[in-house]
Computed example of a mutant assay.
Amino acid sequence: MNIFGSMYDKTMAWSTHRFAAFWLSFVSFIEAIFFPIPPDVMLIPMSMSKPKSAVKLALYTAIASVLGGMVGYAIGYFATDWVQGIVQQWGYGEHWATAISWFEQWGGLVVFVAGFSPIPYKVFTICAGVMQMAFLPFVVTAFISRAARFLLVAKLAAWGGEKFAAKLRQSIEIIGWAVVVLAVVAYFILK
């Protein structure tokens, strides 16, 4: 089954589309609020196919992510009860309590770590609003961490360039199925 290869080919084709930067920014914006797929899945192929534009693309991604994070912050700040009701309804109360305790213990450092790591950023943007973290430090911390993360991802992808893209294409089926197996195993272990 050549599932991942065809998805990879389609993603690489989309990465050179004339509206690709807009869609990258849009995905980055909504990912900081609710969307489950991180913008890296678009930033990486775009940076590989256009290495000279990698820094510009990373900055678009970071700015859009911070703007989305500001919306997430506002949702948490102005709709705290609604957010906490949804968290409980969806069964994420334990995860939410962990995020709240991290904010109480480490404050703005949590936003920095969440912005740079693959931890779902939206949880922490909304949580920052619920915890009423000071807005300006939130924005500054979010921008520094998101810019650092996306610049690193984009520069690494650009460094690999088209040669890496070709090698990745050769192994994409193995990588794709390995990720599926790991996800299934993780699901049953964490269940």
Rank of each mutant, 00 (worst) to 15 (best):
L57W: 08
G107P: 07
F78G: 15
Q88M: 13
W82H: 09
Y73L: 09
L43P: 06
F78T: 05
S53P: 00
L59W: 13
W82V: 13
L57R: 13
T98F: 12
Q84L: 14
I63R: 02
F103G: 00
G68L: 02
F103V: 01
A58H: 07
I63V: 15
A64W: 10
I100H: 03
V66H: 04
W102Q: 04
D81L: 09
A62F: 03
G76R: 01
H95C: 00
Y60Q: 07
V87L: 03
S47T: 05
Y73P: 04
K56Q: 07
Q89I: 04
A58N: 07
A74S: 15
A97E: 11
H95P: 00
K52Y: 06
G69V: 08
W90D: 01
I100M: 11
L57S: 12
S47E: 03
S49E: 12
I75L: 15
V55L: 14
W96D: 02
L57N: 12
M48Y: 10
I63C: 06
T61C: 14
G93C: 08
L43N: 07
V71D: 10
Q88G: 06
M42G: 01
P45C: 11
S101Q: 09
L67A: 14
G76H: 00
M42F: 15
A58E: 05
K52F: 06
I63K: 00
A79Y: 14
L67R: 05
H95V: 11
Q89H: 10
A54P: 08
G91N: 11
A54D: 09
S47D: 02
Y73G: 07
Q89E: 13
I75H: 06
T80Q: 13
T98I: 11
I63A: 09
L43E: 08
A79S: 15
P51H: 14
L67Q: 04
I63W: 05
T61N: 05
M46S: 11
A64T: 14
F78Y: 15
G72W: 01
A58F: 08
M70T: 02
A99H: 04
A64P: 08
V71N: 06
A64C: 14
